[in-house]
Design a protein around this nucleic acid. Sequence first.
DNA 1: GACGTCATTGTGAGCGCTAACAATTGATGG
DNA 2: CCATCAATTGTTAGCGCTCACAATGACGTC
Lengths: 348, 348
Amino acid sequence: MTHIQLRPPTMADVARLAGVSHQTVSRVLGDHPNVRDETRAKVLHAIEEMGYRRNSSARALATRRTRTLGVVASNTTLYGPASTLFALEEAARAEGYVVSTVSLRRLTVETLSEALAHLSEGGVEGVIALAPQRSAVEALAELRHPFPVVAVGTGSGVEIPSVNVDQHLGARLATGHLLASGHRTVWHLAGPEDWQEAADRAEGWRSTLEEAGVEPPLPLGGDWSPLSGYRAGQELAGWVGRGLTAVFVANDQMALGVLRALREAGVRTPQDVAVVGFDDIPESEFFAPPLTTVRQDFATVGKRSIGLLLDLIEGRTPSGTSRIAIEPQLVVRASTFPYIPQPGAAPG
Amino acid sequence: MTHIQLRPPTMADVARLAGVSHQTVSRVLGDHPNVRDETRAKVLHAIEEMGYRRNSSARALATRRTRTLGVVASNTTLYGPASTLFALEEAARAEGYVVSTVSLRRLTVETLSEALAHLSEGGVEGVIALAPQRSAVEALAELRHPFPVVAVGTGSGVEIPSVNVDQHLGARLATGHLLASGHRTVWHLAGPEDWQEAADRAEGWRSTLEEAGVEPPLPLGGDWSPLSGYRAGQELAGWVGRGLTAVFVANDQMALGVLRALREAGVRTPQDVAVVGFDDIPESEFFAPPLTTVRQDFATVGKRSIGLLLDLIEGRTPSGTSRIAIEPQLVVRASTFPYIPQPGAAPG
DNA sequence: GACGTCATTGTGAGCGCTAACAATTGATGG
DNA sequence: CCATCAATTGTTAGCGCTCACAATGACGTC
């Protein structure tokens, strides 16, 4: 317990001890030029001695800048959102901003609106919304807020600035890879209908098939969980031998469930059915078999999002609707080839 | 883009419009009694009309309360930290606090100290440190900070208030379960030496064996990743038939790697070797085979941590060193029994 | 030697809010 | 009918900082 309970020292206290004016202390702290070295030293010494720390509220009040950004997110224990959150915070900190987060269980108009109000109370200068559900995105555009908002993972069809991994492209990579491997058609296990990313992946899969002159089979639906993948996998197993040889699953966790269901049904992967996932979670490489999947670059998403938000805050970017798209990448592993690459060697 | 770029209205503006004093506006906002209903209505109406929001910096300056808590964490994309973070934020928000997070790549004295400084700049009233590495914990006790700090996941051997899942107990549950199932001894794949939780789990395993009169085999070491588990698993496979029939792995991700290595070596789980993990990540139920593991209640960890920190801040708890321990729970699945329970039915 | 120039430091006025106290009003009761 | 009190509202000071500007002093120039 090394913490002081007494009234903390103010700039004036430091100034008194150093024998200068409070303004000079402020200059030293603000790294202004035109402060004599000797004076600077005196001030720094006094600061050290008193253990002085600038009061952020007073500073924020005087400058009208809190240097705080907000993030609203849901499903933060999933790999994607967690990775994005991490990248976001790191990028913001590099720019000297503090990040306040609100993690929602469910993303609805009400919870989103409460979250924005909560962050507003916290004095954020802008907000990043990790709002993958369509409903939430629409709500975002409606809500009134006294700061700029950047949407991430909402798809590009929204009326607010946004940053997205190109889901459509990712789905094309996955589906195209399966077709190129010789499969006549590709089935699809989609994510929840309400998610824009799920819709984009499904659309990418569908258009790739159509362009190849193949009639897309009826897609199945899941809720991102391994359990829903397992259930869908049981259904898919029933179609083996009746045209099903390849499945594109909308995320890795569901793919895990699918793999297990197929295995239990005596269906071999990839010999009987090839499987591709989406996300490249750290576990994917160690599934049975290791999973071919689509990797999203969350670090870049984070950096670009913060960059865009700061541009908006500083007024560097006209507050029109900017959209940034980031390319995903196909990672090929054993679930689509009849051999098992060495773990640790394969991942790029 | 529904955001106002003009100078936002102040309390005085609202007061003018409502024909009252700014203090009356403050009273309405602060839910003070002794405000006539009619007046309150006028004020609320004016607030609504102008889209007024209280300036948090001014408020914080006047009250000397920022109502902001800080969290320092590392490895936030792992299931455990991510879950704890989520629970922490939810608990803090329920108490009306905003949470600012710093996610570190590596936890060292320097990064920790920078993180605390950064949060201090952000005006936090207290900090939760998710600091599982021993070195970091020691640093925490040394560092000077102007606010209370609660350590989470540090083990109880620290000189600062802390909240922990009882790792020792968790390891006893896992090891005891294997011994009770008839195994003569249990091997152990430990986490990184520097992590207190890894040490506690190893110690729990060791003492359980010793109390059963069994000489503990030499434990292996990993870095929590599936890859390190895979490598250790290859080594463990070499000991099958020479006394190895059961392994307690320090986390689920490494257990995943172990399962794969064993499978590749032609070793069957659980018939030849039983495996127990730790954490109960959502995927564990769908491993091949579904993994017996130890579940930690992160929600409770979050709630208790915030509770303790607020007690410290409000001075409700004497700033002595409080320690809170939370019990983990064994979840039995197919990796320790020769049958496969139905997914979706088994998990409690 | 008077003047301008630059570097350095100090002074005063807020930023927008809440806390403490003062003032006003209306109701109550002897 | 006036003292008394509670309910309601207003007034005045800061909270600790930064900004704009004023003041000071050292130096060089013509």
